[in-house]
């Protein structure tokens, strides 16, 4: 196995560091533009609603600050979206509602490309588990109206939703009732469990018919999957 014999020659390190800084700060005009266009393109494709609501001037400023300041750790271009969310959260760059919109679109993207395999509907198994791509989020807006103008400024309480990918690769957004949340939390914490166990655990909070309704609905829409194993299926 080869190991690096030594660090980089000092002049190389110095020149490259200076050039990268100049590119970040836009002092090398063409590279400054290229860096900014790459980020803008990634954000437009990953967060179309957020980009639309944020406004072009604010977006340019945010991209400029991202390129100048943010220590991006993930090399893959498709992780630009994740890096930007981290940057926005750390810098408290956005209003709470715009942050929620950004995080919502990130969760959609994350569910869409999550590497976990989703069991097809009708798979055999006695245990119930949470769809491995599921993200549980609190949203201060109705996601079915997220594309409508003003969503970032509208009032309203936060409500729980599950975002997940189905076995046939559709990304669904499911509103959760209080009962659904209880069921989801129990199943998620256990990894996978038998319906009887779930009934026993939730007996004080949910009537068996309510639990059945919640489970049946979750299984039908793909929020829950069945598995033959007690601790989830391998992804």
């Amino acid at each position: 196995m080869s190991t690096p014999d030594a660090g980089p020659p000092p002049l190389m390190a110095e020149e490259l560091a200076a050039f990268c800084q100049d590119a970040r700060r836009g002092r090398v005009r063409l590279y400054g533009q290229l860096l900014r266009e790459n980020i803008a393109e990634a954000l437009r494709s990953s967060f179309p609603l957020f980009v639309q609501r944020f406004g072009s001037v604010a977006l340019e400023d945010a991209i400029d600050a991202f390129i100048t300041l943010h220590p991006a750790l993930r090399p893959q271009f498709h992780h630009i979206a994740t890096e930007f969310v981290v940057f926005a959260q750390r810098g408290r760059l956005l209003s709470p509602r715009l942050t929620a919109l950004l995080e919502y679109e990130w969760a959609l993207l994350a569910a869409e490309i999550d590497p976990a395999r989703v069991s097809p509907e009708g798979a055999a198994g006695a245990y119930i588990r949470l769809n491995p791509t599921a993200r549980l989020v609190l949203l201060p807006f109705d996601p079915s109206a997220a594309a409508e103008p003003g969503v970032e400024g509208a009032g309203g309480d936060e409500r729980p939703y599950a975002l997940f990918r189905t076995a046939d690769h559709r990304v669904l957004i499911q509103p959760l009732t209080f009962q659904d949340c209880l069921v989801v939390e129990q199943i998620r914490d256990a990894g996978a469990m038998l319906p009887e166990t779930l009934t026993d655990l939730l007996v004080a909070d949910l009537s068996p018919p309510d639990l059945q309704t919640s489970l049946a609905h979750g299984l039908a829409c793909g929020l829950f999957c069945v598995t033959p194993e007690p601790i989830g299926e391998p992804s």
């Binding site: 080869s2 030594a6 980089p8 190389m12 490259l16 560091a17 990268c20 991006a72 750790l73 993930r74």
Partner: peptide, 30 residues
């Protein structure tokens, strides 16, 4: 594509000098 701050998400040119060859060759071998 990276400096001391982090990744830049573009392909930036590097100095092509003879004294940098060993360093680059070592990384390529790795």
């Amino acid at each position: 594509s990276r400096d001391g701050t982090g990744y830049l998400y573009d392909l930036l040119p590097i100095p092509r000098r003879a004294e940098n060859l060993d360093y680059l060759a070592g990384r390529i071998r790795q």
